[in-house]
Amino acid sequence: MRKWSMFLILCMYLAILTKLILFKYIPLSEIIHHFNFTYNEYHWRSNNFVPFKTIYFYLYLADVNVSIRMENLIGNVIGFVPFGFILPFLSKNFQRLSAVAVATFCLSLTYEMLQLIFEFGSFDVDDLILNTVGGILGYLPYKITNLFYPFSKKKPADSLK
């Protein structure tokens, strides 16, 4: 029963995350019109393929409101914390930090590639970095809690039969 609940929570979380990442500037009623596969020169120049370029810009160079900086930096981390927390509850395959980090990176890469291909936003390698950090941070409370209250109870040995 707990796995089904966590699966439903994961589905709702992914639906909300998808709306916030892919469709934040596009009304849901106009999404279908956005699948046109046209690429103009401006679109390709708005992407960032240089690691830490955007992070550095927002930390040291940006002449923008502090709330915009925080939304871009901290928002990318916080948005993926629930993913790192939920995954270990769903499968034993995700009870290692490395597995959660890889899964978070792959989910983030999927969102970034969709933004690049369908022009829902711009591809930013720094989002991959920040999102993956968020997944790792989400895993930590699970791991700490699991140390004190193990979620998977070990079955007694069959030697007493």
Rank of each mutant, 00 (worst) to 15 (best):
M1W: 04
M1E: 10
R2A: 10
K3Q: 03
S5K: 13
S5Y: 12
L8T: 14
L8Y: 11
M12F: 15
L14G: 13
A15V: 15
T18V: 06
I21N: 15
Y25N: 15
I26K: 14
L28K: 11
E30W: 00
E30G: 08
H33I: 06
H34E: 12
F35T: 15
F37K: 05
Y39S: 09
N40G: 11
N40C: 05
E41D: 12
Y42E: 07
H43K: 11
H43P: 00
S46I: 09
N47A: 09
N48K: 08
F49G: 07
F49Q: 02
P51T: 02
K53G: 01
Y60I: 06
D63C: 04
V64H: 09
V64D: 03
V66M: 13
S67G: 04
R69I: 15
R69H: 10
M70E: 09
E71I: 13
N72T: 02
G75H: 03
G75D: 05
V77W: 06
I78E: 08
G79P: 03
F80S: 05
F80N: 10
F80L: 12
G84I: 08
I86V: 00
I86R: 07
P88W: 10
F89R: 06
S91L: 05
K92P: 04
K92T: 07
N93L: 07
F94G: 03
L97T: 02
A99N: 14
A99T: 05
V100H: 00
A101I: 12
A101H: 03
A103N: 01
T104R: 03
T104D: 07
T104W: 00
F105I: 01
C106Y: 02
L107F: 07
S108Y: 02
L109G: 06
T110D: 01
T110E: 03
Y111H: 12
L116G: 04
I117W: 08
F118C: 14
E119Q: 14
E119Y: 10
F120G: 15
G121F: 06
S122T: 15
F123E: 02
F123N: 06
D124C: 01
V125A: 05
D126S: 02
D127H: 01
I129K: 08
N131F: 03
V133Q: 09
V133E: 03
V133Y: 08
I136C: 05
G138P: 09
Y139W: 07
Y139K: 04
Y139D: 08
Y142E: 09
I144L: 10
I144V: 14
N146W: 01
F148P: 06
P150I: 02
S152C: 06
P156N: 06
P156Y: 08
P156V: 01
A157L: 13
S159I: 04
K161C: 05
